[in-house]
């Protein structure tokens, strides 16, 4: 299989292009995007400026004085088609889904027509994939939300929530890195710091990584807030 099988190349100006694997969120699409981003990282072809992976596509920025779209694609290593060679790390992240950490959980459950307990149960049963960063440094969008939790965005934004919040809307979840008003529902809070400009890498997760959540009570969250990584652990399989 070629990198471009089933993909569409889209224009994005004189010094960028987009490799689009689909127009929706799906695990297979996300896997291909992460693999292509990884291939560009490893090949590091001359003239490549940077790549931006998203749920469904890879934006490739380059210097047109030094290379071409064709040369960049030709520099990629052959794709590894074995699906068992899944890229990405598996993590477990503590989250508090109650009290002041989950301000909107009752409203969200009511909107979904399920109980709060059922919402927690469905959410904690899932595994989520980091689909992309965007909006703000370290702001991580997650796919893998169960259809039973697909709630539309609010018609009006709610007041700002703390950084580290777990928010839900539009069939996605997100971990917030800044405090801001949002049209999403705040259903929990983590103690993780999602952006450290001085660290290498500057974010804890790579696009394509998978996250399972472990529920903790509010006092445990406060304790974890004092730690460096908010209780994040690499999952051993």
């Amino acid at each position: 299989m070629d990198w471009l099988d089933g993909a569409v190349l889209r224009g994005s100006g004189e010094d960028a292009f987009v490799v689009e694997y689909g127009e929706e969120i799906a695990p297979e699409i996300g896997r291909r995007v992460a693999a292509l981003a990884d291939a560009f990282d490893r090949a590091a072809p001359d003239g490549l400026v940077e790549v931006v992976p998203t749920f469904r596509s890879l934006l490739v920025l380059y210097d047109p004085e030094r290379t071409t779209r064709e040369a960049l694609l030709a520099a990629l290593p052959a794709p590894d088609d074995d699906p068992s060679h899944e890229t990405g790390t598996h993590w477990t992240l503590p989250v508090c889904l109650e009290g002041e950490a989950a301000e909107d959980i009752a409203e969200c459950a009511a909107g979904l027509g399920i109980s709060e307990a059922r919402l927690r149960e469905i959410f904690l049963a899932g595994t989520y994939q980091v689909g992309m960063y965007g909006f703000a440094p370290g702001f991580a969008y997650l796919s893998g939300v169960d259809e039973a939790l697909a709630i539309p965005r609010r018609p009006q934004p709610r007041p700002p929530m703390p950084a580290g919040s777990l928010i839900l809307a539009g069939g996605m979840a997100a971990l917030t890195s800044i405090s801001m008003p949002t049209g999403w529902y705040v259903i929990g809070r983590t103690a993780i710091t999602l952006f450290r400009p001085e660290a290498e890498p500057m974010v804890p997760f790579a696009v394509g990584d998978r996250i399972a959540f472990r529920a903790v009570p509010l006092d445990e969250l406060d304790r974890l807030a004092a730690t460096h990584d908010g209780g994040l652990t690499r999952t051993t399989s």
């Binding site: 998203t54 469904r56 965007g134 969008y141």
Partner: peptide
């Protein structure tokens, strides 16, 4: 579904009125 944005991209929200995205745009 969101994708990457280069400088100078012209996006069009539902009201049909374009927005030119500049240096400090979200990526």
């Amino acid at each position: 579904i969101s994708d990457g944005i280069v400088e100078g991209a012209i996006q069009v929200p539902g009201n049909g009125q374009p927005i030119v995205l500049c240096a400090d745009r979200a990526p």
